[in-house]
Nucleic acid binder design. Structure first.
Lengths: 240, 240
DNA sequence: AGAAAAACATGATAAAAGTCATGTTTATCC
DNA sequence: GGATAAACATGACTTTTATCATGTTTTTCT
């Protein structure tokens, strides 16, 4: 009886586990059913793209589970990761609201289930529900502050400092894998990590090894564990 | 009869010349008079600060004339300029709406007249006028896109490319001084320019000299003129 | 106007980080 | 399950950019 075609699931928004962590958290059932009406929910494998920079947004993506990197491609072929979305996060609403083409691309980095809600339904809720609109405004303003911070960090800190700060951020943002594990719950390739920090892959590899042999972190494949949080904070603040 | 105390002017928003370039452009008179009711308009000299990072926003600043840099201070004492506001621009509304402390500081770089509108009046208009709210939302979303772009540029381009791109941006954004002049209408110290580009002052000085002797730009004190736009674009795109 | 301070400029040097080359391990795919 | 590709790792070398030192020019202030 097991169908292999598991790519369509279509969980109703009302019953979505990730909704509690999202901007949809306290939307009334009425609004939720409008959002659910024409949505499609699809599972993506690692490496698949949700959308590409320069294309027209047609709706928003809502992550049920999994992780997605949002990145910009440089003329040199290197990508800069702007942020990594996790369950409950929305993608693409920024471009939708500014009525521009996507300014970045999005690709799955850990197997994901993602709902797509068409533009019109999303805008309907936005117009219908001023509290939701305000909430979203607040979120965008916050995001802008976060982005400004990243910009300043990138300009002012060394690669070493930024890598230390990034590891601490990852721990903060993605927490630990289940019980008893102290590994940060995200599997990033060294290349992706380099593209978050804004440096070369080799440099990240070298610094990770250093941090490891200095007893700041532990490495298990792609997963990192923070051993000496104190020292890591110190590395992130000034330069060693 | 001439009072030296020219620092208070209090132009009514209705009659403000810069309003046409601002988000207040098509606000009804009714709303404008609410905004004007408790505002104060002050002239600032170069170097004065409007607000500091980490303090609580009490309202918004609206630039009548002059230029203001918005910057973040790094732990190393270096500042990173996030953007330079010009007449018609608002400052501080981002933090106001996300209900956070200021994430950056603002200082006048060219003598300015700036109105301050208290938080409550601004929020009144925001609640009263959904079209204005939407317009602002759109603007913030656009700003976020711009900031993401800056981040990627900073991460992916060389200092040389970024300086070339910055000069072109300045020309685009601030235009030329009055008639017959081809100088870009902004007087930035080499240090400020370095803090926009995200590099050391000496490096900017050296690169400007190079660009000059290569016939890409002309320099007259703090002002820059673009001589060979074509080549400058080329410098900005890849690396020479 | 003249002193003091700030901004500009240039050279010499050092440090940080990128690139290239090559080998090893780990994942992925018929 | 074994071939193929991708990711990881490390060394050698180069380039870029920052830092330090010092001198000159321009502003600013009284």
């Amino acid at each position: 009886m097991s169908l292999n075609k598991s790519s369509q699931l279509n969980v109703q928004c009302q019953f979505c586990k990730s909704r509690a962590d999202s901007h949809f958290a306290d939307l009334p059932d009425e609004d939720l059913s409008i959002l659910s009406a024409h949505k499609s929910c699809v599972t993506y494998k690692k490496g698949q793209n949700l959308f590409y920079e320069g294309t027209r947004p047609m709706g928003i993506f809502c992550i049920n589970y999994g992780k997605v990197k949002v990145y910009k491609m440089g003329s040199n072929g290197k990508e800069q990761i702007l942020f990594i979305a996790q369950p409950g996060d929305f993608l693409g609403y920024r471009s939708l609201l500014s009525e521009e083409f996507y300014g970045a691309s999005a690709a799955v980095i850990e197997q994901a289930a993602i709902c797509f809600i068409p533009k019109s339904d999303f805008l309907t809720i936005l117009n219908k529900n001023p509290a939701f609109f305000s909430k979203l405004m607040k979120a965008v303003c916050h995001e802008l502050g976060v982005m400004e911070d990243k910009l300043a960090q990138l300009a002012q800190k060394s690669v070493r400092e930024r890598l230390a700060a990034t590891i601490l951020m990852l721990k903060e943002t993605y927490g630990m894998e289940g019980e008893g594990s102290d590994l940060i719950d995200i599997a990033l390739s060294r290349e992706d990590l380099a593209n978050i920090v804004g440096t070369a892959t080799e440099t990240v590899i070298r610094l990770l090894s250093e941090f490891k042999s200095d007893g700041l972190i532990g490495l298990e494949g792609k997963k990192i564990k923070v051993i000496d949080s104190q020292k890591l904070v110190h590395e992130a603040d000034f330069y060693g």
